[in-house]
Computed example of a mutant assay.
Amino acid sequence: MTAHGPVVPIWTCAGCGAPWPCRTRRQELRAEYDRAPVSLALYMGACFLAASRDMGWAPAGLLHRRFLGWLT
């Protein structure tokens, strides 16, 4: 279990206070989903949708880059 989970509805990192997913959590997620990149994309897509609902004031492009833009 990671200390770098999301604090909702503001979607900050419980471990370091950075916008979630923080750098540490991204590294952890890459390792956890190493052999399942589609599953990681689906998980992050679900997080993106939840964050979009919670943070309706945030620009969609910013949230998209934050939650999905780092997936390659």
Rank of each mutant, 00 (worst) to 15 (best):
P59K: 12
G61L: 10
L40S: 14
G17W: 00
V8P: 07
T12L: 12
R53Q: 03
V8W: 06
E32L: 15
L62R: 13
C22N: 06
Q27K: 13
V38G: 13
L40C: 09
C22D: 02
T72L: 10
A31C: 04
C16T: 00
L68K: 10
H4W: 02
W57G: 08
V8D: 04
C16A: 00
R25Q: 14
V38K: 14
A3D: 12
L42Y: 05
A50L: 12
A3N: 12
T2H: 07
A31M: 08
H4R: 11
A14E: 04
W11P: 03
R65H: 13
Y33N: 03
V7L: 12
W70T: 12
G15N: 00
R66K: 15
A36G: 08
V7C: 11
R25I: 06
A58D: 08
L40D: 06
I10A: 09
L40W: 00
G56L: 04
C22K: 03
C47I: 01
H4I: 06
A60V: 15
G15M: 02
E32Q: 14
A14W: 05
V38E: 15
R23Y: 05
P19Q: 01
G45V: 01
L40G: 12
L49T: 11
E28Q: 14
H4A: 03
G45A: 10
V38W: 06
P6A: 09
A18Q: 14
W11H: 06
A3K: 12
W57V: 10
R26G: 09
A58T: 11
R30E: 08
L42H: 12
M55V: 05
G15L: 01
A58W: 07
R26D: 02
T2K: 11
M44G: 04
V7H: 08
A58F: 09
Y33S: 02
R26E: 05
W57E: 15
R53W: 03
A31L: 07
A51F: 02
R26S: 06
P19R: 08
T2V: 06
V7E: 09
L63I: 06
L71S: 07
A51K: 01
R25F: 08
S39Q: 14
M1H: 10
V8L: 10
W20E: 00
P37G: 05
F67G: 01
I10G: 04
P19C: 00
V38D: 14
G5F: 04
V7M: 11
W20Y: 09
A41T: 07
W20A: 02
R53T: 08
Y43M: 15
R66N: 10
A60E: 13
R26C: 05
A36N: 11
R23C: 03
L63T: 07
P19I: 00
R65C: 02
R25T: 07
G56N: 12
C47Q: 13
L71I: 14
A58M: 13
A50N: 06
S39R: 15
G15P: 04
P37H: 07
P6T: 01
T24F: 00
M44N: 03
M44R: 13
C22F: 03
P59W: 00
A3V: 09
G5E: 04
P21R: 01
T2I: 05
A60C: 08
V7T: 10
P19F: 00
P6F: 04
Y33L: 02
A60R: 12
L42F: 09
L62D: 13
A18P: 12
G45R: 08
G45D: 04
Y43Q: 13
G15E: 01
